[in-house]
Amino acid sequence: MNGTVNGSLNMIGYGLAAIGPGVGIGLIFAAYISGVARQPESRGMLQSIAILGFALAEALAIIGIGLAFALK
């Protein structure tokens, strides 16, 4: 612990790569919330669409963490 930092640069790359999906997931749920606020009865229909969009955007972050550990 002499002020040195050990680790892989992959993790910094993963941190940068997670920004995009983070913003994307934020936008998806912002749209979902404002949709439900405008029309509360559409909640059930919007929910599965929102979760689908969330899952697709999240896949990018997940591929990122997978590659961060897999690539040497």
Binding site: A55, E58, A59, I62, I63, I65, G66, F69
Partner: peptide
């Protein structure tokens, strides 16, 4: 591929 990776690495992380 994304079905596999999404579940695996969510649990992994």
């Amino acid at each position: 591929l994304t079905l596999t990776l999404r579940l695996t690495f969510n649990m992994f992380a």
